[in-house]
Design a protein around this nucleic acid. Structure first.
Lengths: 240, 240
DNA sequence: GAGTGGTCTAGACCACCCT
DNA sequence: GGGTGGTCTAGACCACTCC
């Protein structure tokens, strides 16, 4: 067969060359946000490679958040519009957000990152919920609370953020510890957000210490990397 | 051919089933950190699927940081040991770290996230470097500085963090703005860390305002998700 | 040389969407 | 029905490692 067409980019393998060329076209506006890109077979003709090689490139582009592919329709350039929020995590819900309760269970904390908070090893009350913005899933939250609480309070956990429910009962947060990390999507979060395995997530783990010695709240917030970034402003460093 | 072996996991496709089974074996200790897992052809025999399907599963596992594959040797379970560091970004180098200067150029800031800091649109001095821990790349840093500085200072940028060099000249940081996000690896960082395309990164963008009105420092720190997480402790929330 | 992972291709099949 | 993306397989080739 004919020699594959020479293309821009220092990549070695064919699918990398195709991938980088498509990225270039997205960045320079040849393929515009929300719009359909040429089909795999059309691209395979243009680049003179197998359709399967093009599909391999598209797979990478989905994992990197450049594209969304819909069987029967085609591949679309993803619109990039990310929300910036303050790192402070004590309010989940802002105007226009809505909550969906997923489950309330009793579980042990097993996540390796959360263990850095030295949580109790006994099973805790675990509340999982999704925060929506404009009917699109925005945050996935799992909250663990260290003490048995009344049924009325549990019911309220489904409607509001745990801290708000506690404050109504004059339980105040005295300290907030946070761990921020990135992680590849896997398991339940893939389904919640409709993202492929390995899609980068921004995660915020929190530990709220309260003025009730028996009540400490642990939790984790997750969002796809292209939906959320966190900001914080720190006072000027002392002269050291 | 024979019916593919029924396996655990609610996944629909074959490679997802294989992938989840291998994850399960890593988590339950069947495949141990640093150790070799069975070859693709051995796994394909066991699962009764094509070797290519197994390779597809292994590809996902590499992207999610579970495995490292070396041609001619095999696939190894990645050892998970992550560093926790305070969010404060003013010191790159701790004991045992070393720096490698990559380049000093003049560039405009083009990164979409960094533009949230409203940096100047003119070209700036750009210093790229890598921080090593135990001879392994740990952080990738790009620093932009807004003013022409002397050659002696530029030379120092290659050896130490920009803020330290400035402080020696009594230029103090009066405010630090940070943006933390996650992002898929792409381009130069892939080579620096030896990670596949799309590998999740934790990124910290910083803007240092100083007591010199002409001197503002912008920059970005990047690290693979499995090497670094950030911690911060916030004072108790006021009663609202 | 045998085994390994990785790429590239061809061909088949399926599910989905649109007309 | 024809086009789309997605999966699965088979077969070939390459580069690498280890014996």
């Amino acid at each position: 067969m004919a020699q594959p067409k020479a293309l821009i980019g220092s990549s070695s393998t064919l699918y990398e060359v195709v991938r980088e060329e498509i990225i270039k076209r997205i960045k320079n506006g040849t393929y515009k946000p929300e719009e359909l890109i040429p089909s795999a077979s059309a691209l395979s003709d243009e680049f003179n490679v197998s359709p399967i090689t093009v599909k391999r490139a598209l797979q990478d582009l989905r994992s990197a958040g450049f594209l969304i592919s819909i069987a029967g329709k085609g591949s679309f350039v993803k619109k990039q519009s990310r929300v910036l929020r303050k790192l402070d995590v004590s309010r989940l819900v802002l105007g226009g957000d809505s909550l969906k309760l997923l489950s309330i269970t009793r579980e042990k904390i097993t996540d390796a990152t959360m263990l850095a908070f030295n949580p109790p090893s006994e099973p805790m009350l675990c509340i999982r919920k999704i925060v929506y913005i404009d009917d699109a899933p925005f945050l996935y939250d799992a909250t663990y609370i260290s003490r048995d609480v009344g049924d009325d309070l549990i019911e309220e956990f489904g409607k509001t953020f745990v801290i708000s429910a506690l404050e109504k009962r004059s339980i105040q947060v005295t300290n907030t510890d946070l761990i921020i990390d990135a992680a590849p999507a896997g398991g339940q979060v893939e389904d919640v957000f409709g993202i492929p395995t390995g899609y980068p997530l921004l995660r915020r783990f929190y530990k709220f210490t309260t003025n009730h010695k028996d009540i400490t709240v642990y939790g984790m917030l997750q969002a796809p990397f292209d939906q959320l970034a966190c900001t914080i402003s720190l006072p000027g460093k002392p002269t050291k």
